[in-house]
């Protein structure tokens, strides 16, 4: 069994309790304006190219079977993405890490083996494994099998999801998931559509469903001024009806991902305005007035 993933991050500290290893799956049904992992959106493999790191050695030219890399007569590196098949040959030889391949076909057994390597760390810290993305539940069969195998090994499991997935996908992973890290971007549907390109109807329904089935959730609210900053009270009202919610985290928006957009030749959709500390505090206070526990 195979999945398309773009990273396995060891010593992940903010993706659930304790020390965790996070598997990042490639592909996402939403197009959040503030997405900080743009390499996760496309389900296909992609080549990342950081112009500022290129040392002009020309090794990629020789390595590329498609002729996607060339040098102009004045010595400038030119990369033609339309010719690129994301085979990764150039990334392998690039000495400056200017080229990197996002996405690989990963075998379940290999992923599981790598995840089990850090078992000692999970045990010492009450940590475990988190499946994230992108949206991991697009590849729900793989996730369900992986989670099942992890549970057989006594590992705590978390699924980080945007919730914009089918009920079947939720059902597949529910029995093997100890905690859902569930994103809540907006309550009003029109706001949600403006921010992510999709309706939140099934997101809210899926969250209620997970809660009703007894699935534990930790809610994450990205706080993006002018986009969803007026949604906190409504979100809080909705969340206060849940029974199995463990805590809520506000994720203040940062714009550092600009480099990644450039490296993928993707249009930068990042909002300009950053949240002020006082706005975050205000939002947390609002959540607290609904009796919700805020994670620091």
């Amino acid at each position: 069994m195979k999945a398309n993933i773009f990273d396995i991050k060891h010593f992940a500290v903010h993706d659930g309790p304790g020390i965790r290893t996070t598997v990042f799956f490639k592909g996402c049904p939403l197009k959040c304006r503030w997405c900080h992992n743009p390499e996760s959106i496309s389900a296909k493999k992609q080549l990342g190219y950081l112009l500022h790191k290129c040392v002009g050695c020309g090794k990629c030219v020789a390595a590329c079977p498609q002729g996607a890399h060339t040098f102009t007569p004045d010595g400038l590196h030119k990369f033609e993405r339309e010719k690129c098949t994301a085979c990764g040959a150039c990334a392998k030889v690039c000495p400056a890490d200017a080229l990197s391949l996002y996405g690989k076909e990963a075998e379940l057994e290999a992923v599981l083996t790598e995840l089990l390597e850090d078992e000692d760390f999970y045990e010492s810290s009450n940590g475990g494994v988190t499946l994230s993305g992108g949206e991991c539940l697009i590849q729900a069969d793989f996730c369900a099998e992986l989670l099942k195998r992890l549970k057989e090994n006594g590992i705590h499991t978390a699924v980080d999801t945007c919730g914009f997935v089918s009920r079947e996908a939720i059902d597949k992973v529910l029995p093997y998931t100890d905690l859902f890290l569930y994103d809540m971007k907006a309550f009003d549907d029109d706001v949600h559509i403006r921010c992510t390109g999709q309706s939140n109807k099934c997101i809210l329904e899926n969250l209620s469903y997970i809660d009703k089935c007894g699935g534990k959730t930790e809610i994450r609210i990205p706080f993006v001024p002018d986009y969803n900053s007026d949604q906190i009270e409504k979100i809080a009202g909705f969340l206060s009806t849940l029974k199995n919610l463990t805590k809520i985290k506000i994720l203040p928006y940062h714009n550092y991902a600009g480099t990644k957009y450039k490296s993928l030749d993707m249009p930068d959709t990042l909002p300009e305005k950053l949240p002020e500390v006082c706005e975050i505090k205000e939002a947390e206070n609002m959540l607290s007035t609904f009796g919700l526990e805020i994670a620091k």
């Binding site: 500290v13 903010h14 309790p17 304790g18 760390f121 010492s124 810290s125 940590g127």
Partner: peptide, 18 residues
């Protein structure tokens, strides 16, 4: 940034204990 907050401190302890 990798060890900030209560989560981060618990992770530091987890590394040490392991």
């Amino acid at each position: 940034s990798a060890v900030k907050g209560e989560d981060g401190l618990n992770a530091m302890l987890g590394l040490l204990r392991t």
